[in-house]
Write a protein that binds this DNA or RNA. Structure first.
Lengths: 197, 197
DNA sequence: GTCTATACACCGATAGAC
DNA sequence: GTCTATCGGTGTATAGAC
């Protein structure tokens, strides 16, 4: 498992710079462009340094992914603690910058076993995040025919935000205002303005 | 532009087999696994044959993409001509097999300029597909506060179907039943059972 | 139409000097 | 902690035999 070679400290600034470079390359050229040489070049370093700070490329990608997830989780938890958690959740998930990274990691999961395992793990965690904040407002809206699962509503919002972000990155903008208006309307219906507001 | 080399006929069965192999590799291992060697190996051929039938890898990917789009368009148009176009549209777009390819090509567009151009072109075409069949039923449902754009509804259905398919391919299934139930419910509301049915 | 042989670039990864 | 040097493997692509 472990490698017969010196590995740099996790607190190193250079190590963090390599992870920053991974995210930059992913955003700009997609995950398929992630090579040790390109990542190091983006960070202004020699490519051999990648293997001083990480056992291999997978470890670099996994560390970057975990850092991204950690940041994403924090942002999400803060949003869900707000006055109107569903509105805040939509605001976070319709942010194009995060969405592109999320979808890139998701697409990467389809061919990288290490990243796939982490995606499955976080995917399940994500589905149960902040449900205690969301359950009430949606239940309060009162749907006549079928119960609207808070989990399902949040996932749909996440899906729409993710692909809106990816399309924006690619250069497609058609129907985006209509789509945003539709989600805005749904979110307003499900989580009305508080009487005190 | 053109290459100084013999190029095989478009009607060739071997050429089609290479495109089949591209789709198979994309589905199984993601777009980043698409190399001339792996595609040819999947088709049981030598990798040099790729460059007999296609000028380069981009041409192979583009030809495969165009074939996929053509098939997808046909399926969609047939669905939209049915009794309940919105229901049929959801059925087509929640098919995991097509969805995975759609998202893989979408993700690939983020770093492949040739594929990106085709995605943008088809993306705009897709947004206007079959709107004449959809506009009436949705308008007929009568929304009180804000008009539900048929275009937006169809894009949301497409987005949800796409990411459901990708997640399924990756191995995530949590909340999928709830999400499907939610979309089913929405589609039923927007396009009720015909009185004659 | 398919093969062998080959070119040259880039890849991940390691060893060892400084 | 960062460097030079280097390895074997794989990538796209071409030339030419059969």
């Amino acid at each position: 498992m472990a490698v017969n070679r010196r590995i740099g400290a996790e607190s190193s600034a250079t190590r963090a710079a390599l992870m920053d470079a991974v995210e930059a390359v992913m955003r700009e050229d997609g995950y398929a462009a992630l090579t040790a040489r390109r990542v190091a070049e983006r960070a202004g370093l020699k490519h051999q340094l990648v293997f001083y700070y990480f056992e291999n490329m997978d470890e670099l990608l996994l560390a970057t992914y975990r850092r991204h997830i950690s940041h994403y989780r924090d942002t999400m938890e803060e949003a869900l603690r707000s006055d109107r958690p569903l509105h805040a959740f939509w605001a976070v998930n319709s942010n194009a910058r995060d969405a592109v990274l999320n979808v890139e990691f998701l697409a990467m999961s389809n061919h990288n076993e290490v990243v796939r395992a982490e995606t499955v793990r976080f995917g399940e965690e994500f589905r149960n995040m902040g449900l205690e904040h969301i359950a009430l407002p949606i239940g309060g809206a009162g749907q006549e025919k079928e119960p609207l699962s808070p989990k399902a509503v949040m996932m749909v919002i996440n899906f729409v935000g993710s692909l809106l972000g990816l399309e924006t990155a690619i250069g497609i903008s058609g129907a985006h205002p209509e789509i945003r208006a539709l989600v805005d309307w749904c979110v307003d219906e499900l989580e009305p303005t508080p009487v005190g507001g």
